[in-house]
Design a protein around this nucleic acid. Structure first.
Lengths: 346, 346
DNA sequence: AATAGCACTCTAAGTGTTAGAGTGCTAATT
DNA sequence: AATTAGCACTCTAACACTTAGAGTGCTATT
């Protein structure tokens, strides 16, 4: 069928336009595309096809007589249908592995290493979310008396995350009392998600009566004090500075808007939180993003799992004009490796 | 004496030029200065004085017929002799206090709140160094067994800093053994600077002989494992984005260089570490800085003390054209208040 | 259906031109 | 002797104008 052929060619040309634009960051003319096909198609023909593509809103004109640039919709088609995955080379993978392992002793440096690795491999900014506390599984809690009114509570999760908080106590607890409470909690909460604990204890409190009640209440009091279970989710990022070399940021106002994303992390957080729920690589191109602060950029995310449990997410963000294949591969590879490293570390 | 009068006037005019330039960020002409003095001095006279100031390298010409801008040396003179301190108003101080107190429950948010406060009050970037671990005083250490090969060590300092590390043990320790070790250490190291501990234990090890030796060796082994005493000194900052609104950063390359300072923190760290040793407000103007990466900016620092001990430093960084009086007051006030808040928190 | 040819469009870069802000010098004034 | 007014001169920033060339869209041709 002729019709299929035409569609085929349109796709080929769209692909060429997108990739050319990604390379040179300037509107792509018919001439350039023709050369890309070693002149097997003439500029004039290309122009006709371009007009079609423009009608379909896959590419656009900045002004009458400039070359074309892809629209968000064009990028979308490219990513979904035309892009061939650009796997990292073995050398790159081993480079990453070395980078990650060097920083893996300590939680913080691991996060930093991963975000740095993303930006190194892709030239866009790397983002890493810490494992979400509420998705972690309770393992152990200990109470260390500091002085008469203060206790240091230490919470250890399944995945090796340690969270400590100094609790200001109104009533005094004896050492043996604390020990009993921690033993009780360690037995009772074993294997439970941190997110569930508060509800669980409240329920227990309502069911139970009499003498045990006071004890349980104390246990709950000590545990639910703000601080220990306060879900703090940090975000690490790297490469925001080097990405400003992109022509997209030649205007300083644009650059500031981009940087503000990381100072005012809310929008990013929200997006990552949503994405975390589904597996696999997710690509959000420009206006597809619901937050308008992100609508000039493309974000690529992937969740990571520790022991087959979704715990967090990593991603990359940059101008819509980015090397999709490469970034997707890098994010994908790093998310898988991050999970593994954390399992060992946990 | 006439001579004194002339010097006086030169100073007054330098002061006017500096302050005017700080205000409007454009070369200051003789006309503008004259107006600043309500025309009590004519532009022509001002011009003569300006020529003198230029000879002394306190101000300079961007080109033949532009106004003058202060040199680093000019700013220096302004700061040392001419500047009148611009104390924060009561309202501003109480605003700061509220900001700080709201975030003071948690160490991290406290640091963030302080750096944010600096940048809010001054429109330059705020920098806060965490209390240096090695200057902290040992208070208590506890060991919590996680599984057969791993122990969670929790270190509490005088100032309320809590540092934990998971120790991978080669040999197994019994619970009672761990208890003995922690009791021993708690007794032995009480009130000691963390920086001294390693040396102290080594010395003890050499002095002591026989049966106690093994025990001590174990104690030392467990304590000196990388992680627990690893001195990590973090740096918090805020306002790097909003400062880019300054005309100084209209060139994106300049902006990138500035931002890189915070990504590659080494130079900043070094400067802060030196400054920490001496009390009071320190002002480093432009080329006075030894690191050339900082030579376009002014940094103002102050150390802060917890219980009369120098523990860390805070500061502000921005273009040499900044409101010196205000920034100095803000840094000064915040450093004093930070110490106090930390004492309470500790 | 594909292409060559051509007139047309629009930008980016270069070139003058000009207004005006500011200086430096000299002569006049206090 | 110190200050100021006056004036010629300098330099920039802004604007208008021109132009080369890249690229298009259309039409006629293959």
């Amino acid at each position: 069928m002729k019709h299929v052929d035409i569609e085929q060619r349109q796709k080929k040309i769209l692909c060429a336009i997108v990739e050319s634009y990604i390379e040179i960051a300037m509107p792509v003319g018919s001439r350039a595309v023709s050369q890309r096909f070693r002149k097997s198609i003439s500029p004039a023909t290309i122009r006709n096809v371009m007009a079609d593509l423009e009608e379909k809103e896959l590419i656009m004109h900045p002004y009458t007589s400039a070359g074309r640039i892809p629209t968000d919709k064009g990028y979308r088609m490219y990513v979904d249908l035309l892009l061939e995955p650009k796997h990292l080379t073995k050398e790159e993978e081993s480079l990453i592995t070395r980078l990650i392992n060097r920083g893996c002793e300590d939680f913080e440096t691991l996060m930093q290493a991963v975000s740095k690795a993303i930006c190194m491999m892709t030239d866009v900014a790397g983002i890493v979310l810490t494992p979400r506390l509420k998705r972690s599984v309770f393992k152990q809690v200990e109470f260390i008396p500091i002085d008469s009114s203060r206790i240091l509570a230490v919470l250890i999760t399944n995945s090796g995350l340690v969270k400590s908080a100094i609790l200001e106590m109104e009533e005094e607890f004896t050492k043996s009392e604390l020990l009993r409470i921690s033993e009780f909690l360690n037995h009772e909460l074993d294997g439970m998600f941190l997110g569930e604990i508060k509800d669980y204890l409240t329920r227990r409190l309502l069911e139970q009566g009499d003498s045990f009640y006071t004890f349980l209440k104390k246990a709950m009091y000590i545990f639910s004090i703000p601080g220990l279970l306060k879900m703090e989710d940090r975000i690490y990022f790297e490469g925001t500075t080097s990405i400003m070399a992109c022509p997209e940021f030649k205007d300083i106002a644009k650059a500031r808007l981009f940087l503000r994303l990381f100072e005012e992390k809310r929008d990013l957080m929200e997006l990552f939180n949503e994405d975390m729920e589904t597996d696999g690589i997710k690509v959000h191109i420009g206006k597809e993003n619901s937050h308008k602060s992100i609508q000039d950029y493309t974000i690529i995310t992937s969740n990571y799992k520790i022991n087959d449990r979704v715990m967090g997410a990593i991603g990359a963000i940059g101008p819509t004009r980015m090397e999709y294949g490469r970034v997707m591969s890098a994010v994908s590879y790093l998310s898988s490796i991050l999970g593994k490293v954390m399992e060992e570390l946990g």
